[in-house]
């Protein structure tokens, strides 16, 4: 009985820890589907966390925190989009720059606002609530349906994105831009506009992921994104650019970090860093094609237009 209880807690924690990864990775998958690899979503995420914290602190509102968090992430992605689409700069270098900018300026703003010593700020916290009926299910209820609102948001986003990607003309345009911008342009699709929307959407969702980090822990800490933006990029690859698989991949990464807390609470001396390493190794193996070939959008990271400019 005790064992099954801790398993439920473990899987519940895995889902909760997967949320920021899933949000950011679902957003990044939209960006990547358009042929743009934005490795700057780490910057979007930390900006989202700070904006969410500031808004939630000012208005004592979770909702406004999430809205401003998303906007903060979108703003960083906007800078990325202006450089990559407007100036046709290299995606990788620009993404590195926006990551550094996000981490640097949020840290500076935080220190300027709350002092160098890093006084602890306390925010309204995301509370978990039970979904009627579903929450009462044995085992599944406590794992999936006694969670915070961001978890349910991810549940909604998965089928929505899947539908958008594979069953709407917008999804078709997005994918064609990512596979072959030349052909897409000839078909009358405005490549840069599609990419712009895809980049900013990705940023908004990464910002939301950051907002979850701040509001779930009830505070803001410098560098609290802790590389999750980069992990999200791995999650997209492991999830093969497909919303359903991305969610599953995110839970896998979430489970790896949940193990750490299980080990610590059980007083176990099992080496948790090795478990944290596992998802990365698995992603490398997945990329090597051991589980069948995962195929990236063909135009990923390629500049557009290819000449001129």
């Amino acid at each position: 009985m005790v064992e099954s209880f801790s398993l439920v807690v473990f899987f519940g924690a895995a889902i909760r820890l997967a949320v920021p990864l899933a949000l950011a990775a679902l957003g990044e998958s939209i960006t990547e589907r358009s042929g743009v690899l934005n490795i700057g979503i780490e910057g979007s995420m930390i900006a989202g966390a700070l904006c969410a914290a500031l808004a939630a602190l000012k208005w004592s509102s979770i909702l406004l925190g999430m809205v401003f968090g998303a906007l903060g992430g979108g703003l960083v992605a906007l800078v990325f989009a202006i450089f990559v689409l407007g100036l046709n700069t290299d995606q990788i270098i620009t993404g590195t720059a926006t990551t550094l900018a996000g981490l640097g300026f949020t840290g500076a703003l935080y220190q300027a606002r709350f002092g160098m010593t890093g006084s602890v700020i306390t925010l309204p916290v995301l509370r978990s609530f039970e979904v009627p009926i579903l929450g009462d299910l044995p085992i599944l209820g406590p794992i999936f349906f006694q969670q915070s609102v961001t978890v349910y948001l991810v549940y909604l986003l998965i089928p929505t994105l899947w539908y958008l990607l594979f069953n709407t003309s917008w999804g078709l345009e997005l994918r064609s831009v990512g596979e072959s911008p030349e052909v897409a342009e000839e078909a009358g699709i405005r490549v840069l506009l599609v990419r712009f929307i895809a980049i900013v959407s990705g940023g908004l969702m990464a910002g939301l992921a950051g907002a979850h980090l701040a509001l779930d822990s009830g505070t803001f800490i410098e560098n609290m994104s802790g590389g999750r933006g980069f992990i999200a990029i791995a999650v997209v690859v492991l999830g093969r650019w497909n919303p359903v698989w991305i969610a599953i991949a995110a839970v896998f990464f979430g489970a790896a970090s949940a193990l750490q807390f299980v080990f610590q609470s059980l007083g176990s001396n099992l080496p948790f860093p090795l478990f944290l390493m596992l998802p990365y190794l698995l992603t490398l193996i997945a990329l090597s094609g051991w589980f069948g070939r995962a195929k990236a959008p063909a135009a990923l990271t390629l500049p557009w237009p290819t000449k001129g400019r």
């Binding site: 620009t94 981490l103 640097g104 840290g107 220190q111």
Partner: peptide
């Protein structure tokens, strides 16, 4: 009294300025 974190912000600005 300027937060040390400014420096990584400056590093990012250098990158973006080089690109621009």
């Amino acid at each position: 009294g300027i937060p040390a974190a400014w420096v990584s912000g400056i590093e990012a600005l250098v990158l973006l300025s080089v690109l621009a």
